[in-house]
Amino acid sequence: MRKKIAAANWKMNLTLAQGEQLINDVLQAGIKLPEGHEVVFAVPFPYLMRAKALVKNYPGFYVAAQNCYSEKSGAFTGEVSAEMLQSIGVDFVVLGHSERREYFQESNAMLAKKIDLALANGLKPIFCCGEPLEIRKAETQNEYVARQLEESLYHLTAEQMQQVVIAYEPIWAIGTGLTASAAQAQDMHAYIRAQIANKYGKEIALGLTILYGGSAKPSNAGELCACPDVDGGLIGGASLVAADFTAIIGKLA
């Protein structure tokens, strides 16, 4: 049975006090996570250790960094390595988010290096992929996403691939209020799973957790998570409101 995950991506939001309050509000909401269900808080770097301390005694709750650098160590002022994240007990790391690709020119090749460093340090990558609006309009989104998978993930062994979570995020639906329909989300998630099956075999593909990211909120999370190949969400804006994120957690199928 593959894991179901609700991951909160705070991006560059909230003060430490606000973040603590948000995590505590979610933890104290009385959520009973079924077996195989997980909640991940992807918080800004300065808050990682505090977030880890807050979730420590709550089974099924984990902490993610929102990025790591593509080199092991060195003279890269302001960057954070996978080894540093591992040393403070971080569980997951979000890699390849569309904002990182667009604003910081992160390439598929760079992301392959980040994936390797994350796995080498025991971090579980949440690898983001997805197409911009012009690609969707041209109806070439499958080829676009397939290239992202091939160039960033297909060098991995089957064993390594089992440690990866994929998050499909239609870029045209991030922060826009637009959301892919349940049918659109299911089609792409099924396509991604089929591509992984072609490369790594059906068993690994069936065990792969694939999240949807793109303006998911309580009003549509249930329909999205009910799709057979959608295993949860990488939640942006709605994760900044405890009641909304808690409601989404409860809708994991």
Rank of each mutant, 00 (worst) to 15 (best):
R2N: 05
R2M: 04
K3I: 00
I5H: 09
I5S: 09
A7Y: 02
A7L: 10
K11A: 11
L14G: 02
T15H: 05
L16S: 14
A17M: 05
Q18C: 05
I23M: 13
N24D: 07
V26C: 11
L27Y: 07
Q28P: 01
E35R: 04
V39G: 04
Y47T: 08
A51R: 00
K52M: 11
V55S: 04
Y58F: 14
Y58R: 00
V63Y: 10
A65N: 05
Q66H: 11
N67V: 08
N67W: 00
N67P: 01
N67H: 12
Y69A: 05
K72I: 13
F76H: 15
G78P: 02
G78V: 09
G78E: 06
S81D: 07
A82D: 05
A82S: 14
M84R: 03
Q86E: 10
S87K: 06
S87Q: 12
G89F: 15
G89R: 05
V90T: 15
D91G: 09
F92Y: 15
V94G: 06
V94C: 15
L95I: 07
R101D: 13
E102D: 10
E102K: 14
E102W: 06
Y103E: 09
F104M: 12
Q105Y: 09
E106F: 12
S107D: 04
A112E: 08
K114E: 06
I115D: 00
I115M: 15
D116F: 10
D116Y: 11
L117Y: 03
A118Q: 02
A118D: 02
A118N: 02
L119A: 07
L119G: 01
G122D: 05
K124F: 14
K124I: 13
F127G: 05
C128I: 12
C129F: 03
C129G: 05
C129H: 04
P132G: 12
L133W: 11
T140S: 13
Q141D: 13
N142V: 10
E143L: 14
E143A: 15
Q148N: 04
Q148K: 03
E150I: 07
L153E: 02
L153V: 02
Y154I: 11
L156D: 07
A158L: 14
E159L: 06
E159S: 09
Q160I: 02
Q162D: 09
V164G: 08
I166V: 15
Y168V: 02
I171M: 12
I171G: 06
T176Q: 12
G177I: 10
S181Q: 04
A182V: 08
A183T: 07
A183V: 13
Q184W: 13
Y191I: 05
R193L: 09
A194Q: 10
I196Q: 00
K199M: 09
Y200T: 02
I204G: 15
I204R: 10
A205H: 01
L206M: 15
L206W: 06
L206Q: 15
G207R: 09
L211F: 06
Y212M: 05
Y212Q: 11
G213Y: 11
A216Y: 04
S219W: 03
S219A: 15
S219T: 12
L224S: 04
C225R: 00
D229V: 08
V230Q: 12
D231N: 12
G237N: 03
L240N: 03
D244M: 08
F245E: 03
F245V: 01
I249N: 01
I249E: 04
G250Q: 13
G250S: 06
